[in-house]
């Protein structure tokens, strides 16, 4: 596995056979990794009888039956779940980008008493497992009457609860030349105008990275909706899928795979379009997934 040919070891033949070996290894590895995904997608188009007897990643013919059975498989359709997920994800993106960029601007550019302390506290929250705040937050939202609504999932995003993105944006803002906002300040620009007219437009790549990761993490979030949403009409796609697992058990894998594939689709689309941004985001900030 750990063959590491040196770039310039003995002659051309060696180089090309080494690079061929690398390609074979890498291709094999990508196939093994992607095979389950492709198989699931293919199975969602296979008739039920075929799923357990075919390892093929090509269905014998396209059969949309599973999708219909899955979509209408619960009291509320997956249309409801997808809509709920989309609303929550879009609000989360807006809230996160707005509140985190405001906070990041203050930390990166403004001076005020206690700044260093607040900055360390903010970094401290990065390390704090969310389980510690979970139960009191739940009790609080319960008393506010917010349980079984999207508010507990969305409002924290507007309060910059995800310190990770503040950190990411502070790093980016610090890279923008200070001369720009100093000049603007000399011309009498308020901090608000500097934030709107200089920082935000110059930070589009960072804001886009924050927006995309917020979208994906919110879309995939299972724990939050599991705790806060009770009525099926409020379920997100992840929660709907889980209920579907519970209700069909192992009896209808075709429909389960069909709905599973559908819930992966939005993330996959984002991946296709923003691949570079995602990978750069991970490489430069060390995002964990």
């Amino acid at each position: 596995m750990n063959d590491q040919p040196r770039a310039a070891s003995g002659g051309r033949a060696a180089i090309s056979s080494n690079s061929l070996l690398r390609h074979v290894l890498l291709c094999a590895a990508s196939l093994v990794m992607l095979y389950p995904l492709l198989w699931m997608l293919a199975s969602s188009f296979k008739p039920e009888s075929e799923i357990f007897h075919s390892m093929s990643i090509l269905p014998s013919h396209l059969d949309f039956d599973s999708y219909v059975r899955g979509w209408f498989g619960l009291r509320d359709t997956f249309g409801t779940f997808f809509l709920n997920s989309a609303i929550i994800a879009v609000l989360a993106v807006i809230g996160n980008v707005l509140s985190c960029s405001l906070a990041a601007f203050a930390f990166a550019r403004l001076e005020f008493p206690g700044k260093t302390i607040f900055f360390s506290l903010m970094l401290g929250t990065l390390m704090l497992p969310y389980h510690v705040t979970l139960i009191p937050q739940y009790v609080m939202f319960l008393h506010l009457g917010w349980v079984d609504s999207i508010l507990p999932l969305v409002v924290p995003k507007f309060l910059a609860a995800d310190a990770f993105f503040i950190f990411l944006l502070v790093q980016f803002f610090r890279g923008i030349p200070r001369e720009l906002d100093e000049a603007a300040m000399m011309d009498g620009c308020s901090p608000w105008r500097i934030y709107c007219k200089i920082m935000l437009p110059l930070s589009l790549p960072a804001l886009a990275t924050a927006a995309i990761f917020t979208f994906i993490w919110t879309w995939d979030d299972f724990f939050g909706p599991l705790i806060y949403l009770n009525d099926m009409s409020n379920y997100t796609a992840q929660l709907g899928l889980r209920s579907f697992v519970d209700s069909t058990g192992k009896s209808d894998w075709g429909a389960l795979f069909a709905m599973s594939s559908l819930t992966l689709l939005p993330v996959f689309i984002v991946f296709i379009f923003f691949q570079r941004l995602l990978i750069e985001g991970v490489a430069t900030t060390g995002m964990k997934r």
Binding site: S99, L102, A103, K115, P136, Q137
Partner: peptide
């Protein structure tokens, strides 16, 4: 004051959703 204004959402979140809940827990 501008600094605190820009930080106000984070203040609310930090005290209301992190610090106070952590102490309560």
């Amino acid at each position: 004051a501008a600094g605190y204004l820009f930080l106000s959402p984070w203040f609310l979140g930090f005290f209301g959703l992190t610090l106070a809940p952590a102490l309560v827990s």
